[in-house]
Amino acid sequence: MRRWLHSARADPGGAISRALIYLALAIMTVVIVFPLYYTFVGSLMAPGDINSFPPSLYPHGLHPQNYQTVFGLIPLGQQYINSIIQSGVITVAELLTATLAAYAFAFLDLPWKRFWFAIFLSTMMVPWEAIIIPNYLMMADAGLINTYFALVLPFLATGFGTFLLRQAFLTFPQDLRDAAFIDGCGHLRFLVQVLVPLQRPALAALGVFAFLGAWNQYFWPLLVTQNPQMQTIQIGISQLQSVDTNDLGSVMAGVVLAIVPTLVLVIFGQRFIVRGLTAGALK
């Protein structure tokens, strides 16, 4: 924007355009950050405070008891653990299966390679919602409803992640790989000791991407867990809202607890998120 706003001749120093840019940015910041701000502030409001009208935009006195109350409304601690197990298993498994497959696609010769690669890519085009019914029926048949297996099994491999890692692995110099093999390195040793350490940024990108995706899942966990003790935190939080509409402060406290891990990831892991999420957009 500077590039063209600053070229306006009537405004040589760019002071006016700079002020306009700041104004626009400030307005958008308020609009975009407000729901987050209100979540935090609301989580500290007493019931009488958050239920007043017109609503107050800041707390009249702190009411941190909300954070205690919310644990009584739903088994939040257990659901937190469930979410960590679910997202952790999915992330680690996707990293493993995608690394192996990407290695094969990037470095090894195998018959029908293009066909297998097309199979992997085609899984990206199938919307999960279009196959969710048979998957649910399969889990029900196998007696896996309300288990961790149902939460993680369908997501242990990833076409997108394999593609992402393959693109990264292809940049690895063939000479270096040949040298490693002349030194007697086998496939697995090369993978573990040479390739993985050098490809940490790409793996981190996939890891962050997989974790965010798993942590934020909604439709599938809603279907396969009915027991609150087995539900993920996303499901728990959304049940809160129907538990008690007068206790909005506790609902907000639950939301704050649920977004802490992802908030940390967004603030400190932004460059990995950028890498992972924009991988598809830039070639």
């Binding site: 975009i32 950050v33 729901p35 996303q234 977004i259 992802t262």
Partner: peptide
């Protein structure tokens, strides 16, 4: 600031 909504899931 603009990246913050990213911390939210569909549910939250």
């Amino acid at each position: 600031a603009f990246a913050l909504p990213f911390a939210f899931s569909v549910a939250t």
